[in-house]
Amino acid sequence: MRTISLRTVVMAAAVAVGSMSMVACTTTKTDTAAAPRMDSTTINTRANAALERLYTTAPGSKEMIAKAKGVLIFPSVVGGSFVVGVEHGRGVLREHGTNTAFYSTTGASIGWQIGGQSKAVIYVFNTAEALAKFKASNGWTAGADAQVTVGRVGANSSIDTTTAQEPVVSYVLTNVGLEAGVSLNGSKITRVVE
């Protein structure tokens, strides 16, 4: 008869607790949690809310968005993880304030991690060339198809004007505000045909 070691029991308990915590963990309010499939009206409404949160969180961001050639807004990117993390969300590309296309994003990460969360991810295309390359792609990957600069705020919480001038800048928002230093490299973005 085989004996079960204490280590095996502890690992099994850790897996069970981790799995349960993934279901319960989120960093967005229940009224903003993503549905498995959002329609274009829902995406648009949530995209507006995500932009308003960015404007409130980081002074100067509204002016930056107004000057941008395009902005891609994923209002709710939902992720879950237990050692391997997976994220998915749907969003909208806006050019000069007008919705032009819908997209999905998928990302993965590997490493010791437990939990799940939802966040808003915003890509700002500051040059016509960067936007054109993105739109012409058949599946665009952050970091591979274009360098994506992590958007930063200065000491006064205003948008850092140096990083805001890069061709593509990203901002990640959670319930606690702007998440600093989050690299989106490896995130795959694909156009969704509605």
Score class of each variant (00 low, 15 high):
28 T>G: 07
6 L>K: 15
5 S>R: 14
29 K>S: 14
16 A>C: 08
13 A>Q: 04
16 A>I: 12
31 D>H: 09
18 G>V: 00
11 M>S: 10
12 A>M: 05
31 D>A: 11
1 M>G: 15
15 V>K: 06
10 V>W: 05
8 T>K: 09
2 R>P: 14
5 S>L: 11
16 A>L: 15
31 D>Q: 11
9 V>W: 10
30 T>A: 12
5 S>Q: 12
14 A>L: 15
26 T>Y: 03
13 A>C: 14
18 G>N: 00
24 A>H: 02
9 V>D: 01
32 T>Q: 14
12 A>E: 01
10 V>C: 05
1 M>N: 12
14 A>G: 08
16 A>S: 04
27 T>W: 07
5 S>M: 09
25 C>D: 14
11 M>C: 10
13 A>D: 04
5 S>H: 11
15 V>N: 04
28 T>I: 07
16 A>N: 01
31 D>S: 12
27 T>V: 07
7 R>G: 07
21 S>W: 10
30 T>E: 11
29 K>N: 09
1 M>P: 12
19 S>I: 06
18 G>L: 00
30 T>D: 11
25 C>R: 03
11 M>W: 11
13 A>W: 06
2 R>S: 13
22 M>C: 11
10 V>D: 01
23 V>A: 10
4 I>H: 04
1 M>D: 13
19 S>K: 00
18 G>S: 00
4 I>Q: 07
12 A>Q: 03
3 T>D: 12
32 T>R: 15
24 A>E: 04
5 S>A: 12
29 K>A: 14
16 A>W: 02
14 A>H: 03
12 A>V: 09
21 S>H: 04
30 T>Q: 09
17 V>Q: 00
14 A>N: 03
23 V>E: 04
26 T>L: 02
12 A>Y: 02
2 R>Q: 13
23 V>T: 10
13 A>E: 04
21 S>G: 05
9 V>L: 15
15 V>E: 03
23 V>Y: 12
22 M>D: 00
2 R>T: 14
29 K>C: 04
1 M>K: 12
26 T>W: 02
18 G>I: 00
18 G>T: 00
27 T>K: 05
29 K>P: 06
10 V>E: 01
9 V>T: 09
28 T>E: 13
12 A>I: 08
21 S>Q: 08
3 T>I: 15
12 A>K: 03
27 T>S: 15
25 C>Y: 03
